[in-house]
């Protein structure tokens, strides 16, 4: 994770420098705000990575690791098939489309989204 850590920190520092330079040169609020939000987001991720992932031991980070070194540890369950993604996307699209076409379609989409949410929670247990 050291590479990821360095990447996020350097990106955050770079964007902060750009945001500061932009404000100094232009005094233009919209762009400075956008660059500021971007810098804050990157700083947040960098901070999180430092606090939570600094000592993560990934087998992919070990240069001499062999495939057998990864054996035995279970990282979770992969669902190869699930109707929920297409259902969720359809529900979200109905909400979006319904807002501009018909409130009834939007309401239907909201109900479908709620059902998808419940099913996601149940399936993840």
């Amino acid at each position: 994770m050291m590479v990821a850590l360095r990447l996020f920190i350097s990106s955050a520092v770079f964007s902060s420098v750009i945001a500061t330079a932009y404000w100094i040169f232009s005094k233009e609020p919209t762009g400075t705000f956008l660059l500021g939000v971007m810098s804050f987001g990157l700083l947040f991720v960098a901070g999180y990575t430092i606090v939570a992932e600094r000592e993560a031991d990934l087998v992919g980070d070990r240069p001499e690791a062999r495939p057998v070194d990864a054996a035995g540890e279970l990282v979770g369950t992969y669902s190869i098939r699930s109707p929920l993604p297409v259902w969720t996307a359809l529900a979200v699209s109905c909400v979006g489309l319904g807002i501009v076409v018909s409130p009834a379609v939007a309401a239907l989409g909201v109900v479908a989204m709620l059902i998808a949410g419940v099913l996601f929670i149940l399936q993840s247990r």
Partner: peptide, 20 residues
């Protein structure tokens, strides 16, 4: 953490519409 994962559901056939 390793990339080993359990496959919970049998894979669908290659040509079935529902599978896609």
């Amino acid at each position: 953490m390793s990339p080993i994962a359990e496959q919970a559901v049998a894979p669908p056939g290659r040509s079935d519409l529902l599978g896609w």
